[in-house]
Write a protein that binds this DNA or RNA. Structure first.
Length: 480
RNA sequence: GCUCCUGUAGUGUAGUCCGGCCAACCAUCUUGGCCUCUCGAGCCAAAGACCCGGGUUCGAAUCCCGGCGGGAGCACCA
């Protein structure tokens, strides 16, 4: 069988174009405003795969500049990101923080001002935008570099306050691409930073910090989403200014999950005001939340890798991820009965069985059987009880009944080709949490005591769940 | 509006660079059937696509031109 494996690997390999390079050093740069979510996973996994396949090195670079009102740093995010990376089995070799490298940015910021390639602009935000749109230069653009350096020092000294001045790169106010017209390199923010407090008020924007760091840290390949392509040109422009060698760029298209809105800043708000139960709330799609639901990290990797490196924008249903996960867990998960919203019915007729025997896993008889008590009173899900009145259904592995109100008339014991439902005569209280955070109460079979916290099992006819607490039985729904 | 990217079945991909072996790959989805005492898994089968229009060529999903569609950027966010 080895040839099958080889074929598989080759196929996978082709999804990612080969890197034509002797050395590979790449970096992933999460912004610590929350844990990694499924959307961030693409950036992370692609970097990791490229590096692993090319024997390269990977840098974890916390992109923790000061952010904005809408994008707020979150102190806990640093560790949550790390936790997510470890869970995804991403290997990295160095860790850096933008917030620790401010002096470096200042050094090169000053150089670029000395070169006369940048200027301090005191236009207010609105004016700046208008002039950019109209392709008009402002009066600050042409002032002598001595004046610029003077103002720069004032910025650093805190003599100019937030919003009153920025440093802009002198590209071309007439550039055909309005997005590329004299972009901002530094701006002032008086906000407190979770790691360096109030030590700095002048902060670089990502285009500048990346231009410097990607060179200084010796990146060979830069992987980024299509939404950041303009940063390529910004970096190249700055590298040319300094006469630096250029790494290679790789891009991937935008990935959306159908009917899912992934916004970390929005999630941050909702976690803060308790609308979400925390960062492992399934609605955040964080690695932490996926882990709770019993999604395997390998499933996420497979899911992401299937999209390859195409620059096409895609929208996929979450069920695609579930399909990958099911492949991994179906053979592992033992089967049990869970009756959500149970209704008790009385069986009418002779009980011919004392116990019902059902295999723990239908495809693996070696795992043996679980036994269920058969008594005159059995509980079935309210949904089925409602939907199948005056119909014959089969209590799986037990008997066939004709449902009439709160009675079930036993019509036989032989396996028949009719609807089979789960049932219980007794059991334990079970709570099942769904991805929308609603919790369904019901009873689960007594055999659940053979499971333990962290196990992934299947509630028959319901779906795969992960056991979060086994004393007061609490499980988290993964998917069907 | 301007700039850049992108357009293969419902969805996601392979093929596009270096035109013919593409009446187009694989997965998933859907529909039948088999199997199974789960609405899970497995097996078999079917259905389903090269955005449109020109051009080049013996021959175009692949090259050229023009449309049209989708996305992103035009933040003192990342």
């Amino acid at each position: 069988m080895p040839e099958f494996f080889e074929e598989d690997e080759e196929e996978e390999e082709e999804r990612l174009p080969r890197l034509d390079a002797d050395e590979v050093k790449m970096r992933m740069a999460p912004y610590p405003s929350g844990p990694l979510h499924i959307g961030n996973a693409r950036m992370v996994i692609l970097n990791d795969e490229y590096v692993k396949r090319n024997d390269g090195e990977l840098v974890l670079f916390y992109d923790d500049t000061i952010g904005s009102e809408t994008k707020q740093l979150l102190p806990d995010a640093y560790d949550m990101i790390k936790e997510g990376l470890e869970w995804l089995d991403v290997e990295w070799h160095e860790t850096h923080y933008k917030s620790e490298r401010m002096e470096t940015y200042y050094e090169y910021g000053k150089k670029i001002l000395e070169m006369g390639e940048a200027y301090v602009c005191e236009c207010d935000q609105k004016t700046l935008q208008e002039k950019r749109r109209d392709g008009k230069e402002c009066e600050h653009r042409d002032r002598p570099k001595e004046k610029n350096l003077e103002l720069w020092e004032m910025m650093l000294e805190g003599e100019i306050s937030e919003g009153e001045a920025v440093v802009r790169l002198k590209t071309d106010m007439d550039h055909p691409d309005p997005a590329f017209r004299d972009r901002v390199l530094f701006r002032i923010s008086e906000k407190e930073h979770p790691r360096v407090g109030n030590e700095y008020t002048v902060w670089p924007l990502l285009e500048f910090s990346w231009a410097i760091d990607d060179h200084l840290l010796g990146m060979t390949h830069i992987l980024r989403g299509k939404d950041l392509v303009i940063e390529d040109r910004m970096e190249e422009y700055i590298w040319d200014l300094f006469g630096w060698e250029k790494p290679e760029f790789l891009h991937y298209g935008m990935l959306r999950l159908e009917n899912v809105n992934l916004s970390k800043s929005e999630f941050q708000q909702k976690v803060k005001n308790d609308e979400f139960k925390g960062w492992d709330d399934p609605r955040t799609w964080s690695m932490q939340s996926l882990k709770r639901r019993g999604i395997q990290p390998e499933a996420i990797r497979d899911f992401i890798l299937e999209f390859g490196m195409s620059e096409t924008d895609i929208e996929v249903p979450p069920s695609k991820l579930y399909a990958k996960n099911r492949e991994l867990i179906d053979s592992e998960a033992n089967r049990y009965f869970f009756i959500p919203d149970p209704v008790g019915i009385e069986l009418v007729g002779d009980l011919e069985m004392e116990k019902a025997k059902i295999s723990r896993h239908p495809s693996d008889p070696d795992r043996g059987y679980r036994e269920l008590d058969t008594k005159k009173t059995v509980f079935i899900p309210r949904k089925e009880w409602n939907q199948h009145q005056n119909e014959e259904v089969r209590l799986k592995n037990f008997c066939n009944i004709q449902l009439e109100g709160k009675e079930g008339k036993i019509t036989g014991y032989e396996n028949k080709d009719i609807l089979k439902i789960q049932w219980l005569s007794d059991g334990i209280d079970v709570q099942l949490e769904y991805p929308d955070m609603s919790v369904k109460e019901g009873i689960g079979e007594n055999n659940l005591d053979e499971t333990k916290k962290g196990d992934i099992i299947q509630f028959e006819r319901i779906g795969f769940v992960k056991i979060e607490k086994s004393d007061t039985f609490y499980a988290v729904y993964g998917h069907r």
